[in-house]
Simulated scan of single mutants.
Amino acid sequence: MECCAVVDLRQYTLVPGRRDELIRVFDEAFVEGQEEWGMHIVGQFRDLDQPDRFVWLRGFADLPARAKALEGFYTGPVWRARGPEANATMIDSDNALLLKPVELGPRYPVLESPRPPVGVAEIPQSIVGGAVYHRASADDGFVQFFTDQVVPILADTGAEPVAIFESLVVENNFPALPLRDEVVLVWLTSFRDDAAYEEHRRELAASPAWQGKILPELLARKPQELRLRPTSRSQLR
């Protein structure tokens, strides 16, 4: 499979205190369990600012592959065996965005990227950061603004994007899993540790170009900032 023309970004609100339980089930059963159906599990994360939120990304070769893979997995033996266990940890699993790549950098995981085996308990020290920006329409010019004016400053402050996505505005071809009906731009990057992330934030705060021109435009998009800790089996880290 060539990855990833179609990507799901999913953010689950969980029963308080049960995130690690879901992560255990996910990393044990749902990584290879989904990839057997042609999906690519790019990354799965603890939200560092929301202790009961689990965030993950999965990719598909195209829309027909998405429908086929989701139908196969959610009617298959792995989900039948472990799905009830996962569902018991969730309050809301409908916070999901259907995306397409604007740009995937060389650090974006491919299918063959290494992934620790089941049972590895060590949590990476890295942070996957980024943001979701809300947009009025798909033709608002924001993608060009972001790639031309925002990305160079991000790169100069240690946060060159690993991936940039925008909404794939099509009908949901697997309606059993609802999607958010909105247009967004999403970017992600990776920092080696908390200190590198904080240094990036300090450099942005000290940047006249960022503070004077870029930040007001971004704030107008009502951003959701992402600060995520990869699980032990996440490829994106």
Rank of each mutant, 00 (worst) to 15 (best):
R192E: 13
L228A: 02
G158Y: 10
T189V: 02
R221P: 00
E171C: 03
S137F: 09
N172M: 13
A205D: 13
P216W: 04
S190V: 15
L215W: 00
S190P: 02
D139N: 10
R227T: 00
R180A: 15
R221C: 10
Q211I: 01
P175H: 11
Y197W: 14
I164S: 01
R202M: 11
P161R: 12
E203Q: 15
Q149D: 07
D181W: 07
F165R: 09
V184N: 14
L219R: 05
W210E: 03
A196Y: 14
V132F: 03
R227E: 03
K213C: 00
N172E: 11
Q144I: 03
G212D: 11
V162M: 08
N173M: 12
D139L: 04
A195D: 10
S137N: 11
E171R: 14
Q144M: 05
R221G: 00
D194T: 10
S137M: 04
G212Q: 13
L168H: 08
L228S: 05
A220E: 11
D156W: 02
V162L: 08
V170L: 14
W187N: 09
L185V: 12
E225V: 05
R229C: 04
F142V: 01
R221H: 05
A209Y: 14
P230F: 10
Q144F: 05
S167K: 09
I153D: 02
S190C: 15
D140T: 05
D193S: 11
A220C: 00
E171A: 13
E171Q: 14
L168V: 02
P178L: 12
R229W: 07
P216R: 02
Q224W: 00
L188A: 04
L226N: 08
P223Y: 05
V151R: 03
I153N: 02
V150Q: 03
I164Y: 10
L188P: 03
V183A: 12
L204T: 00
E203M: 14
L188I: 02
F146S: 03
E166D: 15
A205R: 11
D193T: 04
T147N: 11
F191K: 00
E182F: 06
A205L: 11
R135Q: 04
V150N: 01
R221W: 08
K213G: 01
E199R: 12
Q149C: 02
A138W: 09
L179M: 14
H200W: 09
E225L: 13
R180T: 07
W187Y: 15
A138Y: 07
A205N: 09
A205W: 04
H134E: 14
E199S: 07
L215M: 03
N173Y: 06
T157M: 15
A155E: 13
V183T: 15
E166T: 15
V169N: 15
L185F: 10
L168E: 07
Q144W: 09
A205G: 08
N172S: 12
A138Q: 12
D148I: 00
E182C: 07
S137I: 01
F191P: 04
L218A: 02
W187C: 06
R201Y: 04
T189I: 06
A206D: 08
K222E: 03
V132C: 06
L188T: 04
E199I: 02
G158K: 05
A206R: 10
Q224H: 05
P175T: 07
S167T: 12
L204Q: 04
Q211A: 08
L228Q: 08
R201L: 14
K222L: 07
L218F: 03
Q149I: 02
P223K: 10
Q149N: 08
